[in-house]
Design a binder for these strands. Structure first.
Lengths: 216, 216
DNA sequence: ATTATTTGTAGAACTTGTTCTATAAGTTTA
DNA sequence: TAAACTTATAGAACAAGTTCTACAAATAAT
């Protein structure tokens, strides 16, 4: 039966409704394709071991970066597979990481139907899809050559203070333990936020947890 | 044209793919119905003011400050409307609160297609849908009432505010969006911290992220 | 039915955090 | 090597956040 499939797709997402929505679009684009709807990682692996897949549309539900390493795992089984990340999380923080890890595209769930179709077609035809937003981001990274791991931009002192902030210490705590003025701590905080392009502690914590164990 | 609609539905969700998936299912159940796909709260209100709606399938994760109190707001416009909450958040924390607030059902996005159809049909026919899980939950709460997920200790308002804090909003942001005094926000923050036994935002974020998707 | 507790809310006084500006020392770069 | 950033640091004025107290309404407990 697989021989009647023009393409083999996997749609992996824990939400049924999303799987079905994506399946519907895939069938619209390629009527004679087979779509495997899967809800978790082990199902994906099982399927990859039995069926050559052209495109995997992959939801990433965990913002902590654990799903990053599933990409090489998948590619080890099927090196030519195209992976389109379909994510509810903000492009700005994650997209480039996933593309570097070997994904063929990163698509926001906020995208309208045309964009979704475009992404799928692009990945199938040219092997990649990069949204306007991400293109700009990459330009930034290349032209201003920011390091891949944004934490590397921080000076030693800045990292020291960022870490304390992330661990929950107040400015006053920090200024006491480091014996500096509170205004100094604030200045650091500002510089850290600026360098990492965030504007609240919550985002700092996210970035920190995301990148702390990653080599650039 | 509205007179040819057997039912009028609204599907409100910020993700296109979800709106379309739900629309597809609704059309499958009631071929001759009209479905309005809307992406934010103000669109919902606008539509409610012009069209009598039988069922609103409402995602509660969208970013424009949607919360519990939109349910009474909606019901004030159309008292007989049925609201089915279709949520990516864990039932255990939110379901009962939304049902108490006047929703007719609470459906997890993890549900399979049959469950989704069942929920929609139940709400349309009998005016309510309560999943096995939630039924058990209610039993537990009524009969055995064991405290499991610490987030359950928080009141509705406390959860609302905790969520905003976790997402990185400042006290001032919160007091502006909720139209309360900044001292009030601080009071909440304190109570939240006390109940969850933490003393800084960082820990709150950790607890929140740890428990938000966990069943008890 | 009465009492106790929780919930939602603030005012005023106070503490903490931010901004804006600035400076000396260290590092790059043209 | 001089000019140009970067880094580590504050003072002062101002903004944001906290504390402590309080009170009415809703809930729960006795």
């Amino acid at each position: 039966m697989e021989e009647q499939c023009e393409f083999n797709f996997i749609v992996a997402d824990d939400h049924t409704i999303v799987r079905q929505g994506v399946t519907f679009i895939l069938k619209e684009i390629h009527k004679n394709s087979c779509v495997y709807q899967l809800a978790n990682f082990s199902e994906i692996i099982k399927r990859l071991n039995t069926t050559p897949i052209d495109l995997l549309v992959l939801d990433i539900s965990f913002p902590d970066g654990t799903s990053l390493n599933i990409i090489p795992t998948i590619k080890k089984i099927q090196p030519n597979i195209k992976i389109l990340i379909f994510s509810a999380f903000d492009e700005n923080i994650y997209a480039i990481r996933y593309l570097n890890a070997g994904a063929s595209g990163y698509l926001s769930k906020l995208s309208n139907e045309d964009e979704i179709k475009l992404a799928i077609k692009s990945v199938l035809n040219s092997g990649k899809y990069i949204s306007k937003n991400i293109q700009e981001k990459i330009m930034d990274t290349y032209i201003f050559k920011k390091p891949k791991n944004p934490l590397e931009q921080l000076s030693n002192r800045e990292i020291e203070i960022a870490k304390l902030l992330v661990e929950g210490f107040s400015n006053i705590d920090i200024c006491n333990t480091l014996n500096i003025q509170k205004s100094t701590v604030s200045t650091y905080k500002n510089r850290i936020f600026e360098k990492l392009d965030v504007d609240n502690l919550s985002s700092l914590i996210q970035i920190f947890n995301f990148y702390k164990d990653k080599k650039e």
